[in-house]
Write a protein that binds this DNA or RNA. Structure first.
Lengths: 187, 187
DNA sequence: CCACTTACGCTACCGTCAGTAGCGTAAGTG
DNA sequence: CACTTACGCTACTGACGGTAGCGTAAGTGG
């Protein structure tokens, strides 16, 4: 037990701050090349030049690692557009574009697939990945939580379903059609 | 090698025709009680009063068993309604109701989740489970394949995503909202 | 210069589960 | 009475997520 939690300057053997970024890059690369299931924790560790035990010291499970990796990959959602319609449309296209980046779509579809059989992972996904966007959208659109929830489930459900079933991100024309469809209801 | 494939009347030790139904019931019961991952092939075999090897003699994989089970559970899609709007709406509510039956929703979400990491299962799912409904809808609505594909992916993507993330089928009010939303585009 | 702390590498391991091999047997067939 | 076919049973493999335990490099504070 440390004598004083205030003395956080104790930097003896402190975690390398660049290691997370290295692992995230290796994770997305592995998922891109080998698929979600093919990107085992062993392989990710090798790709990152890191011991597998180190991964488990920083993340409690493969799912948690992927979620953190995705949080890093997605970043903040841009709110471009004058009215609600433009905001919504640009948001949908932003999400679709992110899913199109190498590894991101497969990681997203994979982690949601794992979540079906793992309540703890569902909690992590909902709280850490989805919640921020839910709150931001709620704030931006002024819709009740229930409507935001439906809106997000339609968009992410459709995009992830396509990604999972085809292995490819949805084509632009379909994304546009999806956006148009959503706009008719939520504009 | 049989001397004549015509002499198919050779009924020596032929498969018990009621065994499939028994297995399907045991499968849905197991999935309902234990979840998709908890319903292992061993447990399904025990629940059905059957050897695990027998399951693998009839189905090449767990996914294939679940798909056949779902085909049996869904049956034919009813086309009720005078116009396209009513047909579409009743179809969506029919699907949602089926997903609400014990075990069906969990089995559906589970098998789609497995499919993300299994191209062979994706093929089975697409060809044996989805294709018939795709063709029927195409016939009924007279829309091009591309539009039917989008329509189905939005509906099934949303419903399965909800089921997978909450463990519960989507509430009626949300199903109605989803149907209304889809109708605005595809009526 | 010397304890002490902390993060990391490494090897070996566990439990679970999908899927397989091989052998014995009941039952109907000609 | 041979023959075929489907099924039960036991034992096994291989992959993968996750863990245990021990050694070590590096920076810290006295």
């Amino acid at each position: 037990m440390p004598t004083s939690s205030v003395a956080a300057s104790s930097a003896a053997g402190r975690p390398r701050s660049d290691l997370n970024a290295t692992v995230f890059a290796a994770t997305l690369r592995s998922v891109h090349e080998l698929g979600y299931a093919g990107a085992t924790m062993d392989r990710i560790a090798v790709a990152a030049g890191v011991a597998k035990t180190t991964l488990y010291r920083r993340w409690p499970s493969k799912g948690a690692l992927i979620v953190d990796c995705l949080i890093d990959a997605f970043g903040r959602m841009p709110f471009d557009g004058a009215d609600r319609g433009e905001v919504l449309s640009s948001g949908i296209h932003w999400l679709a574009a992110k899913i199109g980046e190498p590894g991101v779509g497969a990681a997203l579809a994979g982690v949601f697939s794992d979540a079906v059989n793992d309540p703890a992972l569902r909690e992590i996904l909902s709280t850490r990945l989805q919640e921020p966007y839910r709150l931001a959208l709620q704030d931006e659109l002024g819709e009740p939580p229930h409507r935001i929830r439906l809106l997000m489930d339609v968009v992410t459900g459709t995009l992830i379903h396509r990604m999972g079933m085809t292995g490819e991100p949805m084509a632009d024309a379909d994304v546009a059609a999806l956006a148009e469809m959503v706009l008719r209801t939520f504009r």
